[in-house]
């Protein structure tokens, strides 16, 4: 209770005290708060800075490690590439060397082979010479032929001229115009006139059949007879009979002019029969309607019987021995012989 009383006594003072302290606290609160904030801000600032610097250090470590790693990798890569490039250059150089050799070889061998070209050119020169020679020969031959033909033509024309001028040929009594007496020799035309025969007259109709040359003997006689009978050439003028055992000239002339009178045997061709047969066959062939040949009956040809000749009296015929039978048998000789047994008859 005493305590309570003390407290009762004290309560006022405590109240005062309380208010005082509260007031003091209130008065100092602003300052303290600011100071606390200052302290806290300072501390936090320090803390964050320390953290940041810590982070920075760590980042630097990471970066430096990474960069070192990366740089080394890059360098390795670069070195590899450089090595590769160097290698490739070397290979290229070597391949160029190989290709150079090969191309040189190939071109010299196949495309521009100097020796082959030279050979070809030499061959060409030879070929050219040969063809020039051949062509020269050929043209020479042709030229000669043409000249020959021209000469022949001129000769023909001259001959024709000479034939037309045959009446200008000089005779023994009267020299022609080409045979001048004031010259040492006769003109060339004169010689030609002497050589050529006068042109046959073209007015008379030609005997066309005589040109053909292949007349049959029958045609010959039929053509020959009328001239021999109708238009006989004139007989020679009868002079005195020649000395010696000769016939009269008129008789000789008649004999000479007698036309040919061949016998029938001479007139007929020696192959007349064959020709006639051939003609017959050809006619048969032409007129035949059925192409298939006639076939005899199946065994008709086997049992053909021999027909004796008409003009002979002998009775030769085929002997059956050897084809029909092989043993000689004469049954008629055996007939009636003693000691034989006849099975055939009676």
């Amino acid at each position: 209770m005493a305590g309570l009383v003390r407290l009762q006594n004290e309560i006022e003072r405590i109240k005062k005290e309380y208010f005082n302290r509260n007031r003091l606290a209130e008065n100092n609160r602003q300052v303290e708060n600011e100071a606390a904030i200052k302290i806290q801000s300072w501390f936090r600032g320090c803390q964050v800075r320390a953290y940041l610097s810590h982070l920075q250090r760590k980042a630097t470590i990471i970066q430096k490690t990474w960069r070192g790693f990366k740089g080394r990798a890059d360098f390795r890569q670069m070195a590899k590439a450089a090595y590769f490039i160097m290698k490739m250059n070397f290979y290229h150089k070597m391949s160029v060397r190989i290709q150079r050799r090969w191309r040189g070889y190939y071109v010299r061998k196949r495309i521009h082979n100097y020796y082959a070209r030279k050979r070809y050119m030499e061959g060409l020169v030879r070929k050219n010479e040969q063809i020039r020679r051949d062509l020269d020969d050929y043209s020479e031959v042709q030229r000669r032929e043409r000249e020959k033909q021209a000469l022949e033509r001129i000769e023909r024309e001259k001959n024709l001229q000479a034939q037309r001028l045959h009446f200008l040929l000089s005779t023994k009594q009267c020299p022609g115009i080409f045979n001048s007496p004031f010259r040492p020799g006769p003109d060339e035309m004169e010689l030609r006139l002497r050589r050529t025969k006068p042109q046959p007259s073209t007015t008379s109709p030609r005997n066309r059949t005589s040109l053909l040359g292949n007349r049959s003997p029958l045609a010959h006689t039929s053509a020959g007879v009328p001239t021999a009978l109708g238009a006989k050439p004139l007989p020679p003028i009868p002079s005195k009979k020649p000395q010696g055992p000769f016939r009269e000239p008129a008789e000789v002339w008649a004999q000479r002019q007698r036309c040919l009178e061949p016998s029938l045997r001479v007139q007929t061709s020696i192959t007349d029969l064959e020709q006639a047969r051939e003609q017959l066959y050809s006619e048969m062939w032409r007129n035949r309607v059925v192409e298939a040949r006639f076939q005899p009956f199946s065994k008709a040809h086997q049992n053909r019987k021999y027909e004796g000749l008409v003009h002979t009296s002998s009775s030769f015929q085929t002997v059956p021995y050897g084809s029909k039978h092989f043993r000689e048998e004469h049954p008629e000789n055996l007939q009636g012989k003693k000691g034989t047994i006849c099975f055939s008859s009676s």
Binding site: K127, I131, R132
Partner: peptide
């Protein structure tokens, strides 16, 4: 050329 045409 090979047949000698050029020379001709």
């Amino acid at each position: 050329v090979n047949t000698g045409g050029v020379a001709a």
